[in-house]
Computed example of a mutant assay.
Amino acid sequence: MPKLLYITANPKTSAALSKGAQIGEAFLEAFTKEKPETEIVRMHLYDMDIPEIDMDLLYARAKLSFMGKTFDQLTMVEQEKITRMHELADRFIDADYYVFVTPLWNLGAPAVLKAFMDNLFIVDKTFTNKEHGPEGLLTDRKAVHIQTRGGIYSTGPMAEYEFGDRYLRKALGFLGMEVMDSLVAEGMDHFPEQAPEIMEKAKRLAVETAKRMASEE
């Protein structure tokens, strides 16, 4: 059974409060119509235990990778955090399709998304190092990013300041995943009178993209 991982990084959990969630739900509805056998797994990052790359994790990774230590030789805290890191990575790897729903805040994605992604970069699990450089291991997986922006960042003077979508696409590509064109709804704060039209356009695009993702092998 195929599995779709639906990842949200916004403290607003309901579609009534979150424009991104509204677009995401439109995507899911269209996808499940095309591929009804798909298992949908929701991950709301604000409700999860996500280890940050702190001193414990830095030392745990170093001890296991090049300091010659075994798992049993780690401190209890290091064991707990490295175990949680691998649990998150394993849950991520277990899917076939991925939908990320995030807002653009202060030029980037919410910090919780970066913390989550930091747990996925594990040598010989999600990528490996070759003579020619790193190579992603999460091939044959498709991902799409749904992002809402209050201002205009696709063109004009703010285009060079958008680092949320840009980061996520690069990170997923590094891991070997096929990243589809992002679904962006922008300008709703700057042009509130146009917000309904912007949202309808984004939902239509979400439906089209969902159908394409579900139909492509």
Rank of each mutant, 00 (worst) to 15 (best):
M1H: 11
P2Y: 01
P2I: 01
L5D: 01
L5M: 15
T8I: 11
A9V: 07
N10R: 07
N10C: 07
T13L: 15
S14N: 13
S14G: 08
A15S: 15
A16M: 14
S18H: 06
K19F: 15
A21E: 15
Q22C: 06
Q22K: 14
I23M: 08
G24Y: 08
G24F: 04
F27P: 02
T32G: 02
K33V: 05
E34R: 12
E34Y: 02
E34N: 08
E34I: 05
K35S: 11
K35E: 12
P36I: 03
T38F: 01
R42C: 01
L45F: 00
D47Q: 11
D47T: 05
M48C: 08
D49H: 04
P51C: 03
E52L: 14
I53L: 13
M55P: 03
L57E: 12
R61C: 06
L64C: 01
L64W: 09
G68F: 03
K69S: 10
K69D: 05
Q73T: 05
V77C: 01
I82K: 02
I82V: 10
R84V: 07
M85W: 09
M85K: 10
H86Q: 14
E87I: 13
E87S: 13
L88D: 11
A89N: 14
I93V: 13
D94H: 06
D96C: 05
Y98M: 12
T102I: 15
P103L: 12
L107Q: 14
G108H: 15
A115C: 06
F116W: 13
V123C: 13
D124F: 01
D124V: 00
D124N: 13
K125E: 15
K125S: 06
T126L: 04
F127G: 00
K130T: 14
H132Q: 15
E135G: 00
E135A: 03
G136N: 05
L137G: 03
L138N: 01
L138P: 00
T139C: 05
D140E: 14
R141K: 14
V144L: 04
Q147W: 00
R149D: 03
G150A: 01
T155D: 10
M158N: 12
A159F: 09
A159S: 10
A159I: 04
E160Q: 11
Y161C: 04
E162M: 00
G164L: 07
D165C: 07
Y167P: 08
R169N: 11
K170P: 04
A171P: 02
A171N: 10
A171K: 10
L172Y: 09
F174Q: 10
F174I: 05
F174S: 03
L175I: 11
M177S: 03
M180G: 04
D181P: 09
S182R: 10
L183R: 07
V184M: 09
V184G: 01
A185L: 14
E186P: 02
E186N: 03
P196S: 06
E197N: 11
M199D: 12
M199R: 06
E200R: 06
K201E: 13
K203A: 00
K203H: 07
A210F: 10
M213E: 02
M213G: 00
S215T: 07
E217S: 08
